[in-house]
């Protein structure tokens, strides 16, 4: 795409160069530019400051800026690489790159581990898994007895916690996820392969001076 106008990034000059982001990720320069369209839309939905705030992320995900969800919170926190409470364009592109269909499975496995390691201890602990099961049951309006939830968690630990130390370490997670690839389905977004078709406006508009 040789027709990228710097004008497109004017007013958002703090955003990283698409060429740099393309070099670091699976995305091409024109795909990064298309992602900028998406980023601009989300980051201007409420605060209009060119950064994605939690409320804007929730609005884009759930059509509701107030909807709380443990897993959306985790995704937001992991996207927020600088840990400053907002997602900038570079963070958006680098994080979405994990979800690209062509990103190596090992990267997806590692991202999922960090997602589920709620307290950042380096392990997925039993209490964390219990908390996440309660969250998904609550989200799905499913009622299960405490005993049933314990059984689900116990069963999972029997399969995943190979050294039976009560926590799942990164190697155990890697083995478990490799054996159960369906668990990583949510780590791939087919949309990312056709991003320039989904958001062509940048490509169409680029180079147009007004």
């Amino acid at each position: 795409m040789g027709c990228v106008s710097s004008k497109q990034f004017k007013g958002a000059a703090e955003h990283e160069d698409p060429a740099v982001l393309a070099k670091e990720t699976t995305f091409s320069v024109s795909e990064v530019e298309a992602l900028y369209e998406l980023f601009r839309k989300i980051s201007h939905s409420i605060f209009k400051d060119g950064l994605i705030h939690k409320e804007e992320f929730q609005l884009a995900l759930f059509r509701n800026s107030n909807k709380k969800n443990l897993f959306a919170d985790r995704i937001f926190d992991l996207f927020d690489l600088k840990r400053n409470g907002v997602i900038d364009f570079g963070e958006f592109v680098r994080s979405l790159n994990i979800f690209h269909p062509e990103t190596p499975l090992a990267d997806k496995i590692s991202f999922a581990f960090r997602l589920y390691d709620l307290r950042g201890t380096g392990y997925i602990e039993r209490e964390e898994l219990y908390e996440m099961v309660l969250a998904i049951l609550n989200e799905s309006d499913l009622l299960l007895s405490d005993e049933a939830v314990e059984q689900i968690v116990d069963q999972t630990f029997r399969q995943a916690d190979l050294n039976s130390d009560g926590k799942i370490d990164p190697d155990e997670w890697k083995a478990f996820a490799s054996k159960n690839p369906a668990l990583l389905k949510n780590m791939t977004l087919p949309y990312l392969k056709d991003i320039t078709m989904a958001f062509p406006s940048f490509v169409l508009n680029s180079g147009v001076d007004d």
């Binding site: 897993f71 989200e139 689900i152 995943a160 159960n180 668990l183």
Partner: peptide
């Protein structure tokens, strides 16, 4: 049957992971 459920399989169905929604216009 709870005993045959995999906790991670359950969790992975959360709407919170549905990043495809970000792409909807």
């Amino acid at each position: 049957k709870p005993e045959s459920m995999n906790a991670f399989a359950l969790i992975s169905r959360s709407q919170g992971f549905n990043l495809g929604n970000l792409f909807e216009k």
